[in-house]
């Protein structure tokens, strides 16, 4: 069996090793990315390194909603023109970004920091539920919208959050489950069809 040899210097190997940990990159693509960065040192690598250093030094978690920003409270929490009466609860920041990208929600957000999980041993105390309850108890909050995955973990989390919010009397809603836009009924699984029928509404 041939022994594995390293062709690059330890510095380059370290760079490749770190890049390979980025989601979407494996060892081979990390090697290509490292090579590209080294070839475009002035135009790509140094600006990227500077941007990463600035982000590492200045980005923090918003103490109000759990999102990432350079300010605390974050831009979404302080933005004028957003509806303070609506709080949209998401599991992670990428879910918040997805909703913002779609531009379909103009209220405030709350990031739980994950979902309850029996497999990973994540319990209610590991999530930012207490902060949500504190925010929802403020005057003027009219609705809490649970934008959580239609999975066992997502909906278990939704039930627990709903239970914690119940004493406040604030209406709690969740995103609809069912037929996706462009979805064909014959291709849907039984569970999605069931959820769609359960969530039907008059026209």
């Amino acid at each position: 069996m041939r022994s594995k040899t390293t062709v690059a210097s330890p510095e380059i190997e370290t760079l490749i090793g770190l890049l390979a940990k980025v989601p979407g990159l494996g060892p081979r693509s990390a090697r290509r990315a490292a090579l590209q960065l080294l070839k475009k040192r002035e135009t790509l690598m140094k600006p990227l390194a500077d941007a990463m250093a600035v982000a590492a030094a200045s980005v923090k978690t918003c103490s109000a909603c759990g999102a990432l920003d350079t300010r605390d409270p974050c831009g979404l929490c302080t933005a004028p023109g957003r509806d303070d009466g609506l709080i949209c609860v998401v599991a992670d920041i990428q879910d918040l970004w997805a909703l913002e990208r779609a531009g379909v929600f103009r209220g405030r957000y709350h990031v739980l920091g994950g979902l309850l999980s029996a497999l990973d041993g994540v319990g209610p105390d590991d999530l930012l539920i207490a902060g949500l309850v504190a925010r929802a108890s403020q005057d003027g909050v009219r609705e809490v919208i649970l934008a959580l995955s239609a999975t066992v973990d997502g909906q278990t989390t939704a039930h627990v959050v709903t239970e914690r919010l119940a004493p406040l009397g604030v209406p709690v809603t969740r995103l609809a489950h069912g037929v996706p836009i462009g979805g064909e009924l014959e291709l849907l699984d039984d569970g999605t069809l069931f959820a769609a029928l359960q969530s039907r509404r008059p026209l």
Partner: peptide
């Protein structure tokens, strides 16, 4: 699972 998502006790 999909049939139980709205039933807290069953979940």
């Amino acid at each position: 699972a999909a049939f139980l998502l709205d039933d807290k006790a069953a979940l």
